[in-house]
């Protein structure tokens, strides 16, 4: 997955940037993702449109928050994630980036 993005980044760089004599080089940051509990599913989908920094920056969130956020990615932003994978990702997020609760927060 990571490789794929870097390739995309390099391919994107085709014309000349006016202010400097060569393409601007965007650094790549390897935001840490907790291993286990099917982190590969989160890796597969949650890095398509933005970095993992988006997730880390939210702070710890409740199950309803993560469930709603994953749904928002699918419904509003059209992330192509099956119901089953949504569930897997939500569980992963709640376990490592959140907490269990029944109320909205």
């Amino acid at each position: 997955m990571k490789k794929l993005f870097l390739t995309a980044l390099i391919l994107g760089a085709t014309t000349l940037f006016a202010q400097v004599d060569k393409p601007v080089e965007m650094p790549y940051v390897d935001y840490p993702m907790v291993k286990g509990d099917h982190d590969e599913v989160a890796q597969q989908y949650c890095l398509i449109c933005h970095s993992w920094g988006y997730i880390l920056n939210q702070g710890k969130k409740s199950r309803p928050y993560w469930k709603g956020t994953v749904q928002k990615m699918v419904n509003e932003f059209k992330a192509p994630i099956s119901k089953e994978d949504q569930q897997t990702i939500t569980n992963y997020l709640v376990k490592h980036y959140g907490y269990e609760t029944t109320s909205a927060h």
């Binding site: 870097l6 650094p27 940051v29 390897d30 907790v34």
Partner: peptide, 11 residues
């Protein structure tokens, strides 16, 4: 280009 991340807090 490639910058490997600063942080290995997790993992």
């Amino acid at each position: 280009g490639l910058l490997l991340g600063a942080s290995t807090l997790i993992g």
